[in-house]
């Protein structure tokens, strides 16, 4: 478990206290390395495979994606590679499309609702698991299962559970006297259904990260609060939560960046339907590029690039927050 406490993001258990001496050592180490530096060429020789890899399999696909979005591709010109350059026409077309507004709105709703519930439930469970009781560690490990399952497995399981006629969820609703809901086939419910499945998948991540954050709060703080007479809810609101804020910020920002790009769950459960009711930017981009008989690569790439911009804005905020906490 050596490396668990030395992991990069988000600062886990006890890091605050362990980091100070570690940094001292780093200074000594740096001085030593400088004296015996085997030379920059060796350093870059080791880095070359990674740099080549990043250029070939990150930069180049991204470049091709931008290029796709700036040309008017048809199936034939896609193969021959002679599509005419059309500038930002694809972007204009996409933004003016009737799907754009709803897709953007669904992305926002899906992301915000997912984050709120994942975080709240994850935090409540993390608080619960800070108490010491038998089987605590085992149960916490079991909570990781939904997060580790292939998304196609969890998505198809939820599809069947939410089936209108034979799903177990409607069977339970019927047993307590409620009307069955057309979870996946009604435009009013489809977005909520995929959001519920996504919340379920995201809880473990929030639980584990917030739990390690809670472990890092020294026990004396709680004892001091107890002596001052702060109990229960007050202690959580005034003491625990403020101390957990850095870890919470990181958890939420990471969750945000990852929820924005969720595609598998929605595509497998509803394909973005019925009639676009659960279409987000990610599924729309996929449908444009791959979902139809006649692929529209140009607009598909344009939607994708808009999504990248949104994700990167929040991604840069994340990196900033993390850096600031690292130096604080």
């Amino acid at each position: 478990m050596e490396h668990a406490t030395r992991t990069p993001a988000p600062p886990p258990a006890g890091d605050r206290r362990e980091r100070a001496p570690a940094r001292g050592q780093g200074g000594v180490r740096r001085a030593l390395t400088r004296r015996n530096r085997p030379g920059q060429w060796a350093a870059w020789a080791f880095l070359t495979p990674l740099v080549v890899y990043l250029l070939a399999f990150y930069a180049y696909p991204l470049y091709r994606n931008v290029e796709l979005s700036l040309r008017d591709y048809t199936v034939r010109s896609f193969v021959r590679g002679d599509a005419p350059f059309t500038g930002l026409a694809n972007y204009l077309k996409v933004v003016r499309d009737a799907t754009f507004g709803p897709a953007l709105w669904h992305t926002v709703v899906f992301t915000v609702v997912s984050l709120v519930f994942q975080f709240t439930i994850g935090l409540a469970l993390a608080m619960f698991f800070t108490r010491r009781f038998r089987l605590s560690a085992t149960l916490r490990a079991l909570f990781l299962v939904p997060w580790l399952l292939p998304l196609i497995v969890s998505s198809s399981t939820w599809s069947w559970m939410l089936n209108s006629d034979s799903g177990v969820v409607n069977a339970v609703l019927g047993a307590v006297g409620l009307v069955p809901v057309h979870w996946l086939t009604s435009p009013d419910w489809a977005l909520w259904s995929v959001t519920i499945a996504n919340i379920w998948i995201g809880i473990p991540f929030n639980l584990v990260v917030l739990h390690s954050g809670l472990q890092a709060i020294p026990a004396q703080v709680h004892e001091a609060a107890e002596i001052d007479g702060a109990t229960g809810w007050t202690r959580f609101r005034r003491v625990t939560f403020p101390l957990l804020r850095p870890v919470s910020a990181i958890t939420l920002l990471l969750g945000l960046v990852y929820t924005l790009k969720v595609f598998d769950i929605i595509w497998i459960m509803t394909k973005g339907g019925p009639s676009g009711a659960s279409t987000t930017l990610a599924t729309w981009s996929y449908r444009l590029g791959f979902g139809n008989l006649l692929p529209a690569f140009g607009p598909g790439a344009a939607v994708g690039n808009l999504l990248i911009v949104i994700a990167l804005v929040f991604g840069l905020v994340y990196i900033r927050v993390q850096r600031r906490q690292g130096t604080a």
Binding site: K261, A282, S285, G289
Partner: peptide, 13 residues
Amino acid sequence: MIPGVIMAMGFYA
């Protein structure tokens, strides 16, 4: 942070 769908489109091309 780059969405997989976007990488997929570039790779496809």
